[in-house]
Design a protein around this nucleic acid. Structure first.
Lengths: 359, 359
DNA sequence: CTCCGGGTAGAAAGCGCTTACTGCTCCGGA
DNA sequence: TCCGGAGCAGTAAGCGCTTTCTACCCGGAG
């Protein structure tokens, strides 16, 4: 059937142990022997049996990346960045045969934002004895789920899997302070800067299209927004001018209509993210409102298409790629987190054409 | 350290074999025993050791999905669709304990469009003894690579891994006709319809912004375009009015400038895909050209943002989700391909606001 | 000339699970 | 009453690899 270590050993005239050692490069093997083995591997087109070696060595080279939605560039970009860190260091140090193997296999798993699927994948990864797991994006704020998740993560770590949180707030769930390996975004600060920008332009009647309630990302952005509003003495109406929806275009479209229905005199609408903002723009255009002359619109994340929207979206740029890469390095243990454990990336305000002074 | 089958067996007062059978549900086990085992599993929080079972059973529940770029929604959508088919059939037939386990683990691997990385991932998947592999998107047309790829795929199949091609032309590389499990897009036909649309609008001077040369997708779309042109007796200038670039926004921007430099009287520009079209629009706007009054623009794929571009993009809709889902089912062997082996999805013309009659 | 130790290679014991194959118990039919 | 065969559960032989421990070979020191 399939070529095994033993076949290679036979062909090279050595023992299986020697072949294994050549392949893993962690034990001295004489040059001539090594060459012979390598040739046999070549000739037989031998490919290691991953499960077998994972079983014997009690480790695997799988790294799981959990995302809420692979089809969303927000996650796609982070996943891609994580993955870009998985190959063995290019210029490698020692110069030994094959420094670090072909690298880890980063696999991205699509949870669809569902806590159950998240747990399911974590189990699947645990049973694969994954080397590390990166959880990206915000999470549902639900006691039951948070508990189950924390428990599962604890078990994963107990089993030697490195767990890193990326773009998700540290979970100080219960016991020992924040999770040690966390890369977070300053959603609160970004949202606050965005609202402040609108306020400084003279807006006084702002609508907010929030993401799904009970998600950390949603809450943090909303808090930043409300903080800015309160500081300007505009907190009173906040509740009424907030509409929750999903992080997608349709929610933006529907939400904008709802907001305008509640308050026709709105001069600005802040969307939960860029995708939502696109929906908002569509609804506004349909209603014959000009952006930003009649009404300003903002996004969040600064996904690649934000600059191409019409008009180009004022938004908050999140360093998605950098965060993902950092998470990847943490996952590989190639880099340590700061003393506190949490690396926070700031979101910078990108002022473009979708915001202007109110009429 | 970690809980094993034997621990569960001991706790339930049965043999390891029985526990295994309960967990896999492929052998009769008395109700009472089953319950006892399940309880023990619960109490011990037992999680199967994937590598061990993969080794023993010579199969694993990993399904690899290779994509050129996770950060690109084109691939994200397909990957997401493939993944959506991986869970065990919801309403399941037999009703046995746990029909099909927690489903397969679809893992997406980012090749970045590089043939080497593609091969590397294939090796990684082969060593994990993946149950199936789905290759998405076009591929490089290079004899050396095609050969290496075909060889590797053949070996994967020999090892029992099911290989399916999605959005990639069937590879009749050499021996036995087209690859049996293929889901393809009619890129040629879509491109032809797009060009015909422009032609029927009265355009006679069309620029084409192609993707990277030597990629199947690029070639097919270009062929469709040229075919329409030739049929209209406009083939002569085609070569000069074609510019190659990457499948990204920057290429669209640069390409549009180049095209306009070569031929200022262009009345339409066809972009290789929607993302490229966005770049084209940006360049055009910058130049003060109105779309579609001064010049028409078209995309390809109909990604979600196409409808939100300004103006909304005329493009060809590719049923990305359906194709991915189909590929997923083929990968699981849950569905058979048609007799010929290749399922082709047609691309429908979506006429929107970015095209109009020339001045 | 013997002895010792560094440098290599081999033997063999598992890693945790699956799965023939074997064995037991209990039933109905002869 | 005895026998055959369901129906379940246990035994044990690996799956292909890693790794500890042991064995060997050789050069140089005593």
């Amino acid at each position: 059937m399939s070529v095994t270590l033993a076949d290679v050993a036979a062909r090279a005239g050595v023992s299986a142990a020697t072949v294994s050692r050549v392949l893993n490069g962690n034990y001295p093997v004489a040059g001539a022997t090594r060459t012979r083995v390598l040739r046999a591997v070549e000739e037989l087109e031998y490919v290691v049996n991953g499960p077998a070696s994972a079983l014997a060595a009690a480790t695997s080279d799988l790294v799981g990346v959990l995302v809420n939605d692979v089809a969303d560039p927000f996650f796609g970009i982070m996943a891609s960045a994580v993955q870009s860190e998985m190959s063995p260091v290019p210029g490698g140090g020692g110069g030994a045969g094959r420094a670090d193997g072909p690298g880890k296999l980063a696999v991205v798993c699509n949870t669809g934002g569902s806590p159950e699927r998240e747990l399911t994948y974590l189990t699947l990864l645990q049973r694969q004895r994954a080397a590390a797991v990166v959880l990206t994006g915000g999470t549902v704020e639900d006691a039951a789920h948070t508990g189950a998740l924390a428990a599962r993560l604890r078990r994963l770590e107990a089993a030697g899997t490195r767990v890193v949180l990326c773009g998700r707030p540290p979970m100080d769930a219960g016991d020992a302070g924040p999770h040690p390996l966390t890369v977070a975004f300053d959603n609160r600060g970004g949202a606050r800067r965005l609202t402040d920008h609108l306020l400084s332009l003279g807006h006084r009647s702002l609508g907010y299209l929030a993401g799904p309630a009970a998600r950390t990302t949603t809450r943090h952005r909303l808090e930043g927004h409300r903080a800015a509003l309160s500081a300007a003495g505009l907190g009173g109406d906040a509740e009424r001018l907030t509409v929750h929806g999903a992080y997608d275009r349709a929610s933006g479209y529907d939400g904008a209509r709802e907001l305008l229905w509640r308050e026709p005199s709105l001069t600005a609408i802040l969307a939960a993210n860029d995708t939502v903002a696109l929906g908002v723009c569509a609804a506004l255009r349909e209603r014959g409102l000009r952006i930003p002359e009649d009404i300003s619109v903002t996004g969040f994340d600064d996904l690649p298409f934000a600059v191409d929207a019409m008009p180009a979206l004022t938004t908050v740029r999140l360093p998605l790629h950098d965060a993902g890469a950092k998470a990847g390095r943490l996952a590989l243990g190639r880099e340590e987190g700061p003393p506190g454990g949490v690396t926070t990336f700031r979101g910078d305000l990108m002022v473009r054409d979708s915001t202007g002074a109110p009429r």
